[in-house]
Design a protein around this nucleic acid. Structure first.
Lengths: 229, 229
DNA sequence: CAATAAATTAGACAGTAGGGTAATGGATTA
DNA sequence: TAATCCATTACCCTACTGTCTAATTTATTG
């Protein structure tokens, strides 16, 4: 496992653990910190504390237990998204109830692990998830896939209208897009990014053109539907 | 990578490749066979041939290109499931169209890889998938998660946005909301519903209040995220 | 029948959105 | 060095948004 750290000489993946059981928390920390490319930067034993730490550290990956006392893990993930947190979330639980799995994945989690996962495997999942991969435990993978809407699968001809002629957004434009999706006005976006309203408008204009839409509502809907944010 | 083969001394993971481009096929075979724990047992250049080989070899994992001539990959996966094949399927394509991704995953694929994946990573995915993991490429992960049904209706989110304090939209308002989400202006909505602009505005106003949002962008995003439309 | 809710219309008003054009400095690239 | 892209700012102008108040009609329900 540790060899992988040598392969990628970039800075380690920062991780925050939110888990109420002390022993499990220690176990997770040890298992992950044994990897040179993974660094557990903080731990919390409940969601409120966890959210504070997440806001402070802005980790690459969050290990979130779902069965937390008080605010549960799914609520915490929703709050996390509300505060425009870019961290990838791994839902960690011992349950394999279908509704819980779907609720977690549709509320912000990028991965779903059962707690009996092999520690080394978990490190792999952390790496995968940090790059944006969606990873779902074998025990619940099929039920998740079954929950996807069934699409009439005939008629798939190479319609490359999407990825081809598409102009990519710049980093700054993505930033603006996020705020736009959260419903902010140009004035609010400008205040948020500490630029003038003119700049914000310029970015929005550019976003609309690149996304081939007529107004910010269409841009927001498209961004949400295509998972750009 | 090869060390992993030593770790698991069981028999290698058998793989069948279904891909029309000869060069890609060779590339896949070489990349995978470089791993001691993975064994490419057969290759096909179209779906019909592929299905025959799959029935014959019953491989652990199938690497299925989606853009095949004749019967496409998604149809092939459906047929595969029909013949009670237990093989795990990795959908391999260069497209990132939402419908194609969802169609593939809901038609039998356990993983979705874009073709620019790192060969070593692909071997990892083959290993993961052979154990039943669901693995989705970063480029399309978010879009897939967004396609999952939104579940707020269970006890996971004991908040106000549910049946409790929420005022339900009327039928007409839902109609307006749909047009709103599609990016139409009040004028366009009015034209569509054959009412005056004043009426359309009145409905929109009412929608915003009932949905507890400040503007139509937030309404649209909320509607999409919660699967109201 | 009366009360209630929904759908419809209208006028007015402050604020916002989006398009167009143009200019500047910084960074990267050919 | 020149060319190009990006972020930034500015101004103008038209059109649209969201809220308010107010009125009419229709349907449903107690």
């Amino acid at each position: 496992m540790v060899q992988k750290a040598a392969e990628t000489k970039t800075k380690p993946i920062s991780v925050i653990i939110v888990e109420d059981f002390k022993l499990t928390r220690v176990g997770l920390r040890c298992a992950l910190n044994a990897n040179d490319d993974i660094n557990v930067v903080a731990e919390a034993e409940d969601a409120v504390e966890g959210l504070k730490l997440i806001e402070k550290h802005k980790p690459d990956v969050i290990l979130m237990d779902l069965g937390l006392p008080g605010m549960n893990g799914i609520e915490a993930m929703v709050k996390c998204k509300e505060m425009m947190c870019d961290s990838k979330i791994i839902a960690l639980t011992s349950h394999d109830r279908c509704e819980e799995v779907i609720a977690a994945l549709s509320s912000g989690a990028s991965a779903y692990c059962l707690k009996d996962i092999d520690p080394n495997k978990l490190a792999d999942v952390v790496r995968d998830v940090s790059t944006g991969v969606c990873w779902i435990d074998p025990m619940v993978a099929q039920m998740t896939l079954n929950a996807l809407p069934k699409i009439d699968n005939i008629g798939f001809l190479p319609n490359k209208s999407n990825s081809e002629g598409r102009v990519p957004l710049t980093e700054r434009e993505f930033e603006v897009l996020k705020h736009l999706v959260s419903g902010k006005s140009n004035t609010e976006i400008a205040k948020e990014l500490i630029v003038s309203v003119h700049t914000a408008k310029a970015h929005v204009c550019s976003i609309l053109q690149k996304m081939c839409v007529n107004d910010r509502v269409q841009a927001a809907v498209k961004a949400v539907k295509e998972g750009m944010v």
